[in-house]
Design a binder for these strands. Sequence first.
DNA 1: GTCTATATTAAGATAGAC
DNA 2: GTCTATCTTAATATAGAC
Lengths: 184, 184
Amino acid sequence: MPKESYIPSLMRLFRQYGYDGATLSKISQATGLGKASLYHHFPGGKDEMVEAMLDYLERWLDQNILQTLNSRGEPLSRLQHMCDRVNEVYEGGKQPCLFAILLLGSARDVFHDRVKAIYRVWIDAIATVLIECGINQELAQQRAEDAVSAIQGSLIVSQGLDDPSGFVRLMQHLPGELCKGTLL
Amino acid sequence: MPKESYIPSLMRLFRQYGYDGATLSKISQATGLGKASLYHHFPGGKDEMVEAMLDYLERWLDQNILQTLNSRGEPLSRLQHMCDRVNEVYEGGKQPCLFAILLLGSARDVFHDRVKAIYRVWIDAIATVLIECGINQELAQQRAEDAVSAIQGSLIVSQGLDDPSGFVRLMQHLPGELCKGTLL
DNA sequence: GTCTATATTAAGATAGAC
DNA sequence: GTCTATCTTAATATAGAC
């Protein structure tokens, strides 16, 4: 099997147990591969598995979020499209965010630069849409960062409260809030 | 030394490495106690250390946030007081949140109920202030949850971007935003 | 209350056969 | 590409002296 086919299992495990909690034994069980086979696909061990996940997530972000945000459709509907996809990938707020998991685990330093780049490009893409709506650059940048913060935060709190309704509500209202004051 | 005196070191370690990454060896180093001494103070091991941290954090939340929110001062200044203390405890956005760390580590299930209770009581206290401002109950509850989400999210994103300015900005604007539309 | 020493288990990782 | 078997290290945890 090509190593890409193990990414979904890996993501499920890292989301469930965190970086440190997702042990090779658990990964072996979940993928059905022996430890030696895992090292055949990922010679660098767990770190390389996470890098492969980040590769996948970068592609996913580009294809599902960035391309639409950078397209020529109506700004509000592009933001709605983003929220639809975000809602899907976090399963309506029931799944935690891998970026947060990596930032709060012991391997923070190893993956920090890549997570930072991902946050930056996402925030910038949202800000670009808002500038297009006539919002000035500084406010656009702030609103875009606030939007990503709101998503991350409502995921945390949804996990904490065991109730994803706050996340669902955010996904409904976020596009409109972002465009607020632009008469679109 | 009474075991309370080790709480600050423990909190520093768990915030830096996460639950799974904060090993007994690191804890031994940081506290200057041998492993056996750690088990003398905390017979239940790491879990009991985390419980002691949560005890401390519950007291801290009550004394520094809840008591003020439930007091009879001006609503806006009570919310400002909350933000001042939150800003302190997270060191201006440079420190991550232990609740998020616990929710995203492998021991999630062990501590989930306590974290949930803490989030609930915090959100409810904010909502009570907003209701006092004349905001209807449902909106107050939503705004309060959004406020806690915004705090958690901006901490995550501040860690991710390596730039706490988003958190600092939130601490400045949050009290006003919460009271928005109440003519206070 | 703290220590040294050690037990036990599980983690990450590799060798070499098939 | 996958396996069994094994290695090494480090993790949690305890016994018993001081």
